[in-house]
Amino acid sequence: MLSVEHLKKSYPHSGGSLEVLRDISFTVEAGEFVTIVGPSGAGKTTLLRCLAGLLPRSGGSVTLTTSGRVVDSPPPEIACVFQDYSRSLMPWSKVGRNVEIPLKNKIRERGKRHEQVERALREVDLDGFADSYPWQLSGGMQQRVAIARALAYRPEFLIMDEPFASVDAQTRADLEDLILRVRHDAGLTIVLVTHDIDEAVYLGDRVVVMSGRPTTVVDTVTVDLPRPRSQIATKALPRFAELRTEVLKLITRDGAEVTA
C-alpha cells in the first residue's frame, strides 16, 4: 500500500516561493487502480514526481506501507510511464535494449533478462519489434514500448503521468484497454494522472479529484462500475455518465471557487 500524507511542495520562485502542492493526502491499496484528475496547471506532474521519489518534498510523507519505506529516492517497487514517450525512450538503443537496460541490476543473468524482455514485449503485442528503433514505430507503439519497459521491471506500483495524452483518440482507447488487461494479468497497483475525466472514470477504482494550484484533494470518488470494462458497454452505462458528471462538478466547483 502506498500512503501519501499531507504532502507539500513549493519551489523557490523569484525571491519568494511558489506553492504548488498545499496538502495532498490519499492512499492506494494493493491491487487498486487510482486515477488522479485535476485542472491543467494543478501540479499533477509535480505530485507524481514526488510519489516516485524523483523530487524532494517540502513537507508531509510518501510511504510504502508494506516495507515501511519512506520514498525519498526512486524505490525498486515503483516504475513509471511518462507522457512524452519520444523523450523517455532512448533513440540510440533498439526497442529490446530500451526494455532490457533497466533490468540490469534486477536480473544478473543475461538469458533470463532477455526472456523477460521478450515476455514484456509480448504482453504489449510488440513481439518481433525488439530489433527496431523506437523512432521507427508509431506514437502508440512507442508508448507500448515504454509500458513494456515498466512491466518488465516487475514493479509493485506503476505510476503513469498522462501516458495517453500524446496519441490520437483511437490509439488512446486501445492503450487504455491494454493497460487494463496487463494490470489484470500482472496484478499491478496503478496510479495514473490524467486531465481527461472520462479516462479517469473509465480506468479507475477510485478517482482522486485535485484542485487548481496550490493543490489540495477536493474529494475522492469511488467508481462502482463493473469490471472488465469495455469502451462501448461501460461508457454507455447511466452510472458512467453519473460518475463523470460528479467528477466534473467537483472540478468546476473548485474552479469557480478559485476564480471567485
Partner: peptide, 29 residues
Amino acid sequence: VSAILRDTGRVFGLRPHQRLLHITLPAVS
C-alpha cells in the same frame, strides 16, 4: 540531456555509472 530521460534512468534504479554509459554519453555524442 532531457529531464525525462534522466528521470527514467533514476526511476529504473540505474547506478550513476550506468546512467553515464547508457543515457548521458549517447545523448551527448
